[in-house]
Simulated scan of single mutants.
Amino acid sequence: MRSFSYKQCAARDYDFRVKPCAFKLGDWVVRKISLATKNSTEGTLGPMWEGPYEVTKVCRPSIYQLRDPKGKTLPHPWNADHLKHYYK
């Protein structure tokens, strides 16, 4: 019983601190560079974010389709966990 109560308290505290991130159509965002997309020649001092990209479609809550400034749409949608606002 105590274990269950502790888990509920911990979950409530975590959920209280989580800040949901929502983007609208036309917002500009930058995308986090993962190990799969990172250029191996740049090393550890390379950029952590790439972009900017424009949000063109909201597939589901927190799932977005992006387009680069040249008009090319990215091949698959991206989760909001890997995006952050880009301020011009």
Rank of each mutant, 00 (worst) to 15 (best):
K32T: 08
D81S: 15
T37L: 07
W49R: 00
A10M: 13
K7L: 15
E54V: 12
S3P: 01
V18W: 05
L66G: 03
S3W: 10
Q8F: 12
P77I: 04
Y64A: 04
A22M: 07
C9S: 13
T37H: 10
T37F: 03
K19H: 02
T56P: 03
C21N: 12
T56D: 05
S62T: 14
L35C: 11
T41S: 15
A10I: 13
K19T: 08
P20F: 01
D68R: 01
L66Y: 03
F23L: 01
A36F: 09
W78M: 12
L66E: 04
H82Q: 14
E42T: 04
R17M: 08
R60Q: 09
K38R: 15
C59G: 09
M48N: 11
R60K: 15
W49H: 00
E42L: 04
K24P: 00
P52C: 04
E54M: 15
W28Q: 13
K70W: 03
R60W: 08
D27E: 09
V29R: 01
C59A: 14
Y6I: 14
V30Y: 07
C9D: 13
R31D: 10
P61Q: 13
Q65P: 00
S3N: 14
P20M: 06
M48Y: 10
P69L: 02
G46P: 00
A22H: 08
T44N: 12
D68A: 06
F23V: 05
K7A: 11
S5K: 14
S40T: 12
G26M: 04
Y86N: 03
R17L: 07
N39V: 00
R17F: 06
K88P: 03
H85R: 13
Y87K: 07
M48T: 11
K84L: 03
L45G: 06
V18A: 05
L83H: 06
A80I: 00
D81C: 14
K72F: 13
L45P: 00
